[in-house]
Amino acid sequence: MATVLKPQSVSPRLATLSRILDHPTVLSVIFMLPAASILLLFLTYPLGLGIWMGFTDVRIGRPGVFIGLENYISLWYDGVFWLSVFNTLLYTTVATVLKFGLGLWLALLLNHSLPFKAFIRAIVLLPYIIPTVLSAIAFWWIYDAQFSIISWSLERLGLIDRYIDFLGDPWNARWSLIAANVWRGIPFVAICLLAGLQTISPSLYEAAALDGANAWQRFRHVTVPMLMPILSIVLTFSVLFTFTDFQLIYAITRGGPMNATHLMATLAFQRAIPGGQLGEGAAIATAMIPFLVFATVFSYYGLQRRKWQQGAADD
């Protein structure tokens, strides 16, 4: 029995509405709205406000006025600010290199069949699970001038006569903080790279072995290129996290001694909140943006899917 489809008897207005709602562009805008508004409210607005505040002389308890680039000009002649830039770059570079070297090494170890593999993997994650402030306090004790377990052990071993002043000397303090950051950061790198290693087909290694590659050549020609995509993602995140680190520094040294361990993030906080100079703090924080954008753009190009990862398209 053939049924004749009659035009539904709805009002033309409703029909227009339903046609508009069926449009993919309209639909996608509607569906994105909740997520977009959260982003706008909690990310874009604070970021915009921060940048604006950098151009004002706002203080705690007093609305500021627009002063143009004055904050930035005064920072330009501020030795402490430049010291914090230097510290941040040193901290990020050295810690990242160490985290990746040690993390890759650990991932390669864990990728082999070890006894108690699952247990060891769980232990590796431990530094990452502990709240940052908690581990910072632990490191504070480890580096304490009087109660340091490192100094105590080295003295007992007869290697030193006098306790090391870990946090009192500028360079000691810097290296101490880098060590703490590396300790905290390795699990993230190691677990990510381990995940990457496990996606590499074992038959590639077997094929390489039959092709005559020794262990180093297999690492160089199979592991490294296959790991590259995930390596660059992890590298980006690691650089961003390290560059903007705050908790560890603030809990262990608060930027001391003599601003020797102030990173840009801690200095911005120091000037803005305890110091009350919200405008100047915002300017310091804003000054981090070019560095972060550079790191992101750098990795964006580094991250671009390599030709061999792309689909079946012709050249």
Binding site: S201, S203, L204, A207, A208, P225, M226, R306, W308
Partner: peptide, 8 residues
């Protein structure tokens, strides 16, 4: 069986 060609 899976060819094991080096994808890169």
């Amino acid at each position: 069986q899976n060819y094991a060609l080096y994808p890169h």
